[in-house]
Design a protein around this nucleic acid. Structure first.
Lengths: 72, 72
DNA sequence: GTGAAAAACGCATTATGATGCGCTTTTCTG
DNA sequence: CAGAAAAGCGCATCATAATGCGTTTTTCAC
């Protein structure tokens, strides 16, 4: 996944949960600034930073074989 | 996945490919220091840093639902 | 067991990610 | 359309990830 794809996935998930960036940022313990940059794919976050946000969204990241395809 | 799990996965994959840390680090364009820390799970790498290494190893990371279980 | 290769790590430095603040732009809602 | 809410973003600062170098420890082949 590219950073853009990650950002888009986070955004979709956030909207699904009807959260504003501000609220998600607060729940995750990151700044609004950091979150907006991340959602737009214009950031190179640390694993911790990303994990904090994924955690609130009920998501996680996983290392897999490159050729493996995503489930529907 | 925790950082320890990620590190262990990278290490296993590297060994499978019969690479030394030094060689993998060079191929990935990171320092030996950064790689050793990462494999031991004692690092909080950026997504870019992690991606560079995963790329050489034929791996990638993906954002998924937290409850989804890993394939065998 | 000995020696060499590989990996771990302490410490200082450099590069860059995260934050803070405020202003601008975009997106909703009525 | 008008106003408000949400999101985007420029810039300076702070925090910390990445590097560089040398030394120590562990691993492995003989």
């Amino acid at each position: 996944m590219t950073k853009q794809e990650i950002g888009e996935k986070l955004r979709q998930r956030r909207k699904l949960l009807r959260l504003r960036q501000r609220d998600l940022a607060e729940l995750a313990g990151v700044t609004l600034r950091g979150l907006t940059d991340l959602e737009r794919g214009e950031a190179n976050p640390t694993v911790n930073q990303l994990a904090k946000i994924l955690d609130v969204l009920g998501l996680e990241f996983r290392v897999v074989e490159r050729s493996a395809h995503a489930p529907s």
